[in-house]
Amino acid sequence: MYIVALVGNGTILWVIRTEPALHQPMYLFLCMLASNDLLLSTSMAPKMLQVLWLGSREIGFDACLGQMYFIHTFSIMESAILLAMSFDRYVAICHPLHYATILSCPVVVKMGLAAVARGVLLVIPCPVLIRRLPYCFRRVIQHTYCEHMAVVKLACADTTLNRTYGICVALLVVVLDLGLIAASYGRILQAVFRLSSQEARAKALGTCAAHASTLLVTYVPALFSFLTHRIGKHVPPYIHILLASLYLLLAPTVNPLVYGVKTRQIRQRVLRLFSQGEKTLVGH
């Protein structure tokens, strides 16, 4: 999955960079998503593979806090980018004549910077609050990476503040982003069903198919993992660990495949690349 994530997202970035016709807001957001997916998977997969394959079961405290910070920061950024992409689809379908004016390059850049700033600022208190906690003899994290709650549970002190802040940030991000995404798609569906032509409806909905698939792949495993971790008292620990490990790798692995299949311009460019490679091999 990690190799597919690296190759797939790297290919998406290369195709968009080398194809001038794809230098549009929709594909710039896709570049942000691919870059974030590369960073998110790389922040946890190499160490996880060391743990599972090489038995490297130790990590320094500062390195653990660093890994935890990056994983949660990139996860929040992922949600913000998906929200920006839903706004892009809303403008493209509901206000097509003003698309270039509303989503100009400076606006896209500002939206990307806002996504980065929100992730960076919201997660900073987590390692700061964890560092102030005392730790006794139990220093084994029951996980494949340094997840916030897994580290907090090691402390031999009152962790109410840490738990409360973690839950508040998760709920704020999920409720705010999913609420705005749902509002965008509500307006999109209203606009689509006003169209008289069945073909026009299908075409409009088709432009949202890749993004809708990405939303499902990202939010469903994440919400399931979040809920079982906090209210699933009878769920075995290995289920928690498996779900939490998979949901960080699933989206970076699946997203480039979904956009590669669903987006005609990207699919054609990749197929053209492979056909050129085959011709070169035949020529040699």
Rank of each mutant, 00 (worst) to 15 (best):
A150C: 12
R163C: 09
V173Y: 05
L205G: 07
F224K: 05
I241Y: 02
Y99E: 01
G55E: 01
A200W: 09
M48F: 12
L122R: 03
V15P: 03
I3V: 11
H234W: 05
L176K: 09
A183M: 01
R118G: 10
D88W: 07
A244R: 10
L250W: 03
I167P: 03
M26C: 12
N36K: 05
L154E: 07
I167W: 10
G277L: 14
T263D: 14
L248K: 12
L40I: 05
L216S: 11
S35R: 12
P237C: 03
V4Q: 09
V235S: 01
R267W: 02
Y247I: 06
V192M: 06
Q50C: 13
P221D: 00
I12F: 01
A191K: 09
T11N: 06
A202I: 09
P221W: 04
V107L: 07
A45S: 15
R264D: 14
L33R: 08
L249M: 14
C31V: 08
A45F: 14
C64D: 01
I167F: 11
R267Y: 02
V151R: 02
G186D: 06
G55K: 06
S41W: 04
L189F: 15
S196M: 14
R118A: 13
L180E: 07
L6Y: 07
N36E: 05
C146E: 02
H240N: 15
M48P: 11
Y69V: 00
R194Q: 15
I76A: 05
H240R: 15
Y238K: 10
L195G: 10
R139F: 05
R187H: 14
N162R: 00
L250I: 10
G179Y: 05
Q67K: 00
L249S: 14
L113N: 10
T214R: 04
I141L: 12
L33D: 13
I81N: 04
S79P: 02
F193A: 05
R264Q: 12
T18D: 13
L242Y: 10
Q276P: 00
H143Y: 13
P237F: 06
L121S: 10
R272L: 03
V140Q: 15
Y165L: 08
P125M: 01
T101F: 12
C208N: 02
R267V: 00
I71Q: 04
I59W: 04
Q265C: 08
L83C: 08
T164G: 02
Y165T: 05
I102H: 10
S196D: 15
S245Y: 11
S245G: 13
A115K: 01
L223G: 06
C208G: 03
C208S: 00
R139M: 10
A222M: 10
R230L: 14
L6K: 11
L205Q: 08
R230V: 07
L180G: 07
L243D: 08
Q268S: 11
K203P: 04
Q198P: 11
S86M: 01
V120A: 09
E278H: 11
R272C: 03
G206I: 08
V15C: 05
I76V: 13
A114K: 07
G283E: 13
L129Q: 01
D177T: 08
F29V: 06
F274D: 01
H240M: 11
F137I: 05
R269F: 04
A100W: 08
L281K: 15
A191Q: 11
E58K: 15
M44F: 13
A21F: 00
R131F: 06
L49W: 12
Y247D: 07
I12L: 11
S41C: 14
Y2L: 09
T11M: 01
K110W: 10
T207G: 08
